[in-house]
């Protein structure tokens, strides 16, 4: 109780997290609703293929790159895969994170027994390797963003901010778990605060894609699928 950072940690875990969660959730609801309310006109051309089926399929199939393209942008593809996978493993398979999700969503309390579940957590080696690889991938992606003419030309403040907001939770989490430096309580508090920054930025930046990609891929597949064309 004598740790001067204890109050900060408590605030980050309590009110801080609640504020971030509300902004994240409400913001994302607004972002999705403001897309859907625009609607789209019903298509009067008789369909040749299956728009709905192909739309749903494309949500998944677009995760795989087109043949040959990987050679032209290896850093973007490989860095992108490694970062996303690493981030997801660290976020969803680290024991303490699972306890947190349980406390938010109450899998073990509110849900009927039959629906109550918790996926297994991974061991430290996997979590830490995933985190380290995700950070390295982000560094490679930033290098490409700064040096590749295309990526440099289309980058905005948003791209650099989001990059930083993704690095911070990974790096601070790695430092906090391994007690690499600094006060462990402070490091944990900073880790949680960095995640909260990420959550708050979510609806206002390109981080939105983590939710809206389902819509955009669906529409792409549905538009092509209607014509019986590949997507």
């Amino acid at each position: 109780m004598n740790n001067p950072y204890f109050d900060l940690l408590m605030w980050a875990r309590g009110p801080g997290f609640d504020i971030a969660l509300i902004i994240f959730a409400a913001g994302m609801v607004i972002r999705v609703v403001e897309i859907l309310v625009l609607g789209r006109k019903s298509d009067k051309a008789p369909a040749k293929g299956s728009p709905v089926g192909q739309g749903i399929r494309t949500v998944f199939s677009r995760s795989i790159p087109r043949k040959g393209l990987i050679n032209y942008a290896p850093v973007t593809y490989l860095g992108g895969y490694i970062f996303h996978l690493g981030f997801f493993i660290a976020l969803f398979f680290f024991g303490p994170h699972l306890s947190l999700f349980d406390s938010i969503f109450g899998f073990s309390h509110w849900w009927p027994e039959a629906l109550s579940f918790q996926w297994p957590s991974f061991g430290r080696v996997i979590i830490e390797s995933a985190t380290a690889l995700a950070i390295l991938a982000l560094i490679a992606l930033m290098y490409s963003r700064l040096t590749d003419p295309v990526r440099r030309a289309i980058s905005t403040f948003d791209d650099y901010l989001v990059w930083l907001l993704c690095v911070l939770p990974l790096a601070s989490g790695y430092v906090a778990v391994n007690k690499l430096f600094g006060d462990p309580t402070l490091m944990l508090a900073l880790h949680i605060l960095s995640v909260e920054l990420l959550m708050i930025a979510f609806p206002f930046t390109k981080l939105t894609h983590a939710v809206t990609f389902v819509l955009s891929r669906y529409y792409n597949g549905a538009i092509q699928g209607r014509k019986g064309a590949e997507s």
Binding site: R31, E34, I35, L36, V37, L38, G39, R40, K41, R66, L69, Y72, A73, T76, Y77, G80, D148, V150, R151, I154, S155, T156, D158, D159, K206, T208, H209, T212, F213, L215, S216, Y219, I223
Partner: peptide, 26 residues
């Protein structure tokens, strides 16, 4: 011209630049 698909497309862009690699003009 702005409808739900257009809004979802712009909302989802992560400025990865891969579209350039597919473009004959680029």
């Amino acid at each position: 011209q702005i409808d739900a698909p257009v809004a979802s497309f712009f909302s989802s862009c992560v400025s990865c630049g891969l579209c350039a690699e597919a473009c004959i003009f680029y």
